[in-house]
């Protein structure tokens, strides 16, 4: 199987403080990797660094996406190359409609791939299909991005955008936080249906609960900026029992 993402000795800091202290991780197409760990371990920093958030400085290491140097690409190019982040706190953008936002994102990606932009009809049809996957209402189109959305609607909207953009690597950052059990099921179903042998996911979570719905092939424990333990889904259950104290 092909290596989709390769991370070698990744170090990163924010405002001079080192958060990631040497991460090594390889993800192959078709795999789901869970990253668990105590608060402050660097879970969200890892997602920020992989997606090109310029607040963080990479001080050492290499990251390859499908063999290409990911760290040299600006954030928007990483996205067009297929890296998608489901944000822990999706941003509200008043005055920018979902339909306008999504059409710009889809067509700028298509342009990058050398494809023609989608026609208005084809685009709206695609929106409709993908909305159905997340059981979302039609009125969404004309609403401003995330503005006034409930916690559950925001997370569904993230997965909806993931469905629209068809990334090869999805990073789900605490997607379960703030979700009730029904919304969690819909979000997890959406993620599972988007899974193909060609793509992969990183599921960042503090709790085991989400992993009942999105079953990982590997579970990694991140503590103090390093992966300190790797196992299969049983490791998540074990952590549920013992907590993270042993790693702190």
């Amino acid at each position: 199987m092909m290596n989709l993402l390769e991370i070698y000795d990744l170090h990163a800091s924010i405002a001079g403080k080192e958060i990631l202290k040497g991460i090594d991780l390889t993800i192959r197409a078709g795999e789901v990797h869970a990253i668990m760990g105590p608060n402050g371990a660097g879970k969200s920093t890892l997602s920020a660094v992989l997606t090109g958030n310029e607040q963080y400085e990479v001080t050492k290491g290499t990251v390859l996406l499908n063999g290409k140097d990911l760290l040299s690409m600006p954030a928007e190019v990483r996205a067009r190359e297929g890296v998608f982040l489901s944000f822990q706190y999706p941003v509200e953008i008043p005055g920018v409609s979902m339909v306008n936002f999504m059409r710009t994102a889809v067509n700028e990606k298509r342009q990058y791939e050398g494809k023609e932009p989608l026609s208005a009809t084809a685009f709206l049809k695609l929106m409709r299909e993908k909305r159905a996957l997340l059981e979302m209402a039609d009125k969404l189109n004309n609403r401003s991005v995330n503005e006034g959305f409930s916690g559950g609607e925001k997370k569904k909207n993230e997965i909806f955008q993931m469905a629209m953009l068809e990334p090869c690597l999805s990073i789900l950052d605490e997607t379960d936080s703030g979700l009730d059990i029904d919304a969690l099921r819909i979000v997890a179903d959406g993620v599972n249906r988007l899974k193909t042998p060609q793509n992969a996911s990183i599921v960042i979570t503090h709790y085991q609960r989400l992993l009942d719905y999105i079953v990982p092939d590997y579970v990694h424990v991140l503590a103090d900026g390093r992966i300190v333990k790797t196992g299969t889904k049983e490791l998540a259950l074990e952590l549920e029992e013992t907590g993270y104290v042993q790693f702190e």
């Binding site: 997606t51 090109g52 958030n53 600006p74 954030a75 928007e76 996205a79 067009r80 998608f84 982040l85 944000f87 999706p90 941003v91 509200e92 953008i93 936002f101 710009t104 994102a105 700028e108 990606k109 990058y112 991005v145 955008q161 953009l165």
Partner: peptide
């Protein structure tokens, strides 16, 4: 809003 700009870039918007 820098966080809105980053959110848009993360979706592939220049």
């Amino acid at each position: 809003d820098e966080s809105a700009l980053f959110y848009m870039r993360q979706r592939g918007i220049s």
